[in-house]
């Protein structure tokens, strides 16, 4: 399946755009998505940390990703 991943903050700079498309196997997990992105964009690994959000909630590494989910990369937050 193809997943469109939203990017914010420094992740947008790393991906070179506000979204990036990733091909994943069905039943892929958040950890699979991270591995795939880190392979393509090694700079992700240099961040202090980053999270994946699925449907507007922080996702666990073991969480499954479905084709129609809204998926986003959340680099370290710095609001306020």
């Amino acid at each position: 399946m193809e997943i469109t991943v939203l990017a914010f903050g420094i992740a947008k700079d790393i991906f070179g755009g506000a979204t990036v498309t990733v091909g994943l196997t069905n039943n892929a997990t958040t950890a699979d998505l991270k591995a795939s992105l880190e392979e393509k964009y090694p700079k992700l690994k240099h961040l202090a940390s980053y999270m994946v959000a699925v449907n507007n909630e922080y996702a666990e590494d073991s969480g499954l990703i479905a084709e129609r989910d809204e998926v986003a990369i959340i680099p370290p937050v710095s609001g306020g």
């Binding site: 420094i10 922080y58 986003a72 937050v77 609001g79 306020g80």
Partner: peptide
């Protein structure tokens, strides 16, 4: 609220 906002809310500052 402000301390928690700075830790978990997806907002970024450049």
């Amino acid at each position: 609220i402000i301390d928690s906002l700075k830790q978990t809310v997806p907002i970024w500052k450049k």
